[in-house]
Amino acid sequence: MGITRRSFLRRAAVVLAGVAAAGAGWSYLKGLAQSANEAPDQAASLPSAPVQQRTPQPHHWAFVVDTTKCIGCGKCVAACKEENNVPEDPHFNRTWVERYVIDEQGEAYVDSPDAGVHGFESWPVNSKYQNIQVVKSFFVSKLCNQCENPPCVQVCPVGATYKTEDGVILVNRSRCIGCRYCIQACPYGARFLDPNLRVADKCTWCYHRISKGMDPACVEVCPVGARMFGDPADPDSAVAKALRENRISVLKPNLGTRPQVFYIGLDQEVR
């Protein structure tokens, strides 16, 4: 009797466990099977996954910012909002311009009034530096770094953000649940929650433009050529030339994100 009871118990336990696993896992197993059959989107960011069919261009894009040229006109910020329907509210930006002012003591003051969308020329914006012995001052424009190793893609619980073969991080707006984990994970403050769509948004390097052979809007309107875009593999491109002829740095290299936005003349104070 005891033996049968024990064997029943064992059987019951097996059945219970089996039922629990099968039941609880049913729907997501289905999901897994789908992911294996349908789109290799989970694997999109893994280098080993061959995803040739959705890579019409064999490009790997890069962006160069020449901080020695930027004049802080803010045309790039305004153009980005225009081109990509980014909310006008200065708290939501796919790109922005920062100004660094360094005084005699080496203290750095940083500002970005309205994300730089109206430039930096207006009087109140400059008056705060009147009593400061300025040693040097310069502008740095910022945008999504389209990291090779993107923390935002890593943390997205539903895989709504992904990296394309040509190296651009995009957000699937029909899938994002708006948990904002990616916003926390981005070390560069490049992401925000779109207040209208309630999904994460970020710079796409104007994916609709670059895939038509055009420059991103910010590059298009920059009057001084401080922003460059292209494929470094093409030796005649502006970015290839800039990367060849200059000492280059990236933002926060210590985090291992491997940004694809490269900076010329980056000061140590820029973070």
């Binding site: 997501y28 999901g31 992911s35 943390v155 997205c156 619980p157 649940i177 708006g178 984990y181 929650l193």
Partner: peptide, 23 residues
């Protein structure tokens, strides 16, 4: 209640990204 799109909450079970701690 915090989600931007709470109606998609089930996506976290149905289409999870297993590299995400949250999934």
């Amino acid at each position: 209640a915090h989600l931007g799109r709470p109606e998609r909450a089930f996506e976290i079970f149905i289409t999870p990204n297993f590299r995400s701690a949250m999934a």
